[in-house]
Design a protein around this nucleic acid. Structure first.
Lengths: 208, 208
DNA sequence: GTCTATAGGTAGATAGAC
DNA sequence: GTCTATCTACCTATAGAC
């Protein structure tokens, strides 16, 4: 599957696998070379240092995660249609890259200075402001309950992403196999959409 | 503040700080020794190896996080009271230990074999079954909407924990300072409780 | 218990042959 | 471009004086 790539491409593929599995500190240049089917010397020929190689991988991973969020933030669809589309697509994407969120979020937490400024130079900071405006408009029209839009966005992202970040603990808690967890995630598409729709329903709550 | 502890206690405190900040692979025994105000040799006198020391720290961190979840799972209070109490207390706890969830969840993801079996020997696996039963009862009575209880539990945990795991990205997205983020978290207590209550409201949704 | 010194291994990086 | 061999630095762990 990686046989048709040139050497630099194979290195990037291998580095991505190893860095995502082990993190920056746990990754070994030797292991990346082994997975790419080359030797250490050649690694440094293509990427001068471990830092360089990691930056390339991290930026790529970040570029994969964030534009999917911007789908939610920047499309012009009606609110609930947008919500459905986003949850559907994002959960599909995360199911195909289940270790990506933990990698991005954790490395971000461990090297905040270095990367936050690199990201600002990437002009792809997630920008939820358009969505925030849309939510406020809907609330003013009375179409949905009044809610702080920022918290709503964070709630949606939380329910989508957290099951991937916390997967080992969730699986231990629920005592389910890998296959069953995949089914569980698939079910969440509908569950999350319904949950949010109901939470936004404009009828006043009489529960206490 | 750590002056009144004996050496072993100071080592544990220092190790916890360093491991949580850097992770297992990124932590250095030298740094732990420095933070504890002793030298490397003495570290090995108390804990034979880095692995040993890490296990002690990880188990302690795990023991701090999980019983708080069990508060939600095992108390006998009415559903919504329990929910309010849990969100309030868990967010307070996480605010005091903001880096704990990322540490536990990530190291769990990177050493699944070793720790999942250790945890099963700790007889403190989170067990949500009692809460699941309670949710089913309430739904049968018609007091709340019919919902898969497992997904409801995961939704609640997600909305509480995710903002701490994803903090750097959230702060970049929302462009808020550390102090403002603390206020944001404080606001979430009420937001999450309201959001869940409304989502569970038994009135049928007419939105589309 | 606490220290210094160092062994033993491995990491990232470079030099140079082909 | 790709390899082998090697340098240098650092990390974990141990030995042994006090």
């Amino acid at each position: 599957m990686t046989k048709d790539l040139d050497t630099e491409g194979r290195v990037l593929e291998a580095a991505k696998r190893v860095f995502i599995r082990k993190g920056y500190a746990g990754a070994r240049m030797q292991e990346i070379a082994d997975e790419a089917g080359i030797n250490k010397g050649l690694l440094h020929y293509y990427f001068k240092s471990k830092d360089n190689l990691f930056s390339a991988i991290f930026e790529q991973a970040f570029r994969e995660m964030v534009p999917r969020q911007n789908e939610l933030f920047e499309s012009d669809l009606p609110l609930f249609i947008k919500l459905e589309q986003f949850v559907e697509r994002y959960l599909d994407f995360l199911s195909e890259h289940p270790y990506l969120p933990a990698f991005v979020l954790l490395e971000l937490q461990r090297h905040p200075e270095a990367f936050l400024q690199r990201i600002s130079g990437m002009d792809m900071k997630p920008n939820p402001m358009k969505l925030v405006m849309q939510i406020q408009m809907e609330a003013q029209k009375g179409a949905i309950r009044i809610i702080n839009p920022i918290h709503l966005v964070v709630n949606i992202l939380s329910m989508c992403v957290f099951p991937f970040v916390a997967r080992p603990m969730m699986q231990a808690m629920l005592q389910v196999s890998d296959a069953d967890y995949a089914l569980f995630i698939r079910d969440r598409k509908e569950v999350i959409v319904d949950f949010v729709k109901n939470a936004l329903h404009p009828a006043p709550s009489t529960l206490h």
